[in-house]
Amino acid sequence: MSDRRSVTVSVNGKTYTREVETRLTLADFIRHELMLTGTHLGCEHGVCGACTILLDGQSARSCLMLAVQAEGREITTVEGIARGEDELHPLQQAFMDNHGLQCGFCTPGMLTTLIEFLRDNPDPTEREVRVAISGNLCRCTGYQGIVAAALDAAERLRKEA
């Protein structure tokens, strides 16, 4: 006997309804029910930050929420960040241009975390960027490229504003 519920969420502007087990995490819901596999699962207990999504615009670890808790909420995953089919978000472009990724596993969490951060702090110092991504583990880059990308993106976004 499993405890099941219907859940309706908006992900990247599209509404989905699924009936799921109440113990299903939001991360597994996004990956296995919605087949949006851009959100990555590393540690599955809230340490690595790879599964970070935006919940009503605020960053949150999707492995630390139940899918049923997202009822009626708006979620943005890495698939919903780009400006369009042929145009990346300036942050994504800055990651490409500054070697902000190698294997790419941590990248979805880095991007979602930094989108919220740069929205709230458009002109950060390097130190502030490092604190902002302190909850996201990267095992490839040594963080240098990521920090450079974040600072570069901040500048690009400021020019747009």
Binding site: S59, A60, R61, L64, M65, T113, E116, G135
Partner: peptide
Amino acid sequence: VGHRQTRNR
């Protein structure tokens, strides 16, 4: 306390 992502929740 934790990180921005955890303080949000």
